[in-house]
Write a protein that binds this DNA or RNA. Sequence first.
DNA 1: GGCGATTAATCCGTGTACAGATCATTATCG
DNA 2: CGATAATGATCTGTACACGGATTAATCGCC
Lengths: 172, 172
Amino acid sequence: MSGDLKRLISTYDLGSAPGHLIRRAQQRAVEFYVAEVGEDGPTPQQFAVLLNVFQNPGMSQTDLVQASAIDRSTLAEILRRMVARELVSRTRRPGDQRAYALSLTADGLRMLEHAFAAALRAQSRILEPVPPAERPAAMAILATIAGFGGGDAESAALAAGDSAGKSAGDDA
Amino acid sequence: MSGDLKRLISTYDLGSAPGHLIRRAQQRAVEFYVAEVGEDGPTPQQFAVLLNVFQNPGMSQTDLVQASAIDRSTLAEILRRMVARELVSRTRRPGDQRAYALSLTADGLRMLEHAFAAALRAQSRILEPVPPAERPAAMAILATIAGFGGGDAESAALAAGDSAGKSAGDDA
DNA sequence: GGCGATTAATCCGTGTACAGATCATTATCG
DNA sequence: CGATAATGATCTGTACACGGATTAATCGCC
């Protein structure tokens, strides 16, 4: 009967589940981000939008979905707010009235410039508890678990920044 | 002027930010969870609630906030739904009418038992791209980044399952 | 024994996440 | 050219996340 299963369940430690640890890690990362950037600055997702649109002016929302790993529905909502606050401007693309061409407003650029250093500080605080010698390995493991890279978490260590521009944000 | 800053910003790769990788990792983890458990089963958070309440019948919502790392507002909302679906029952604690005593209903227990194996499969899929030999190290690093443990990601490797029952869920 | 501090939980407002349906605009092909 | 498919974006509905204000019950302490 279910007695065996029940015993299994009662001894399972949620704290040993990778998924749970990843969730906790994300809570911590956001906590640092907010602590550094402050309440008035962009949220992490808004920061990603500002950064990507700055680096890629004129990109469409679908382009941004790829670049930011924010799904289309969520991104539409985020942009709705950012456009309302005049951080981002949208114009229909000449030649294709379906797509938008996104760009930063002066306010959006200002906000990005203002938050950038703080966001960098937050990133380094995330890895702070990891001994410096192990940080490249940690980055490689994160990249692997995030679905990038070939699974070798040792050699690829320094390469956390490599493109890996393929299988990322797919779903269906 | 802002020229230097702009150059810095334009060369920054979001993909090399630990926070971004953690976010991606979480998306992937949830993707696997949903794929294994299915649309009808509990969400990851609901699973955590079911598991904790099963292991700790009579616990209060505040207890559960600690155990699950779900904040009080969110947990109230999650429980509202779960109570409405009769997965969890709440009774005011005799002797302290402020707190609830939580327990699983027969349906809640059934759902937990039904989802358990699938949830385990999802957990192992998360680490699948990491070579087996590096998995303990990966768990140790996740625990470290999640804010558990002393920061030594090597010796504690095999201990991913150890209690770690201390500095956990604090915030304010 | 009553009054202020604590504690348990909810409510409110804002923001993110994502699947599925819908709508408009191009593209394609016969 | 016209039906149809594909593409870009929105809308709807459900769920999670979290800070701050509020309410209710209990505790502490004089």
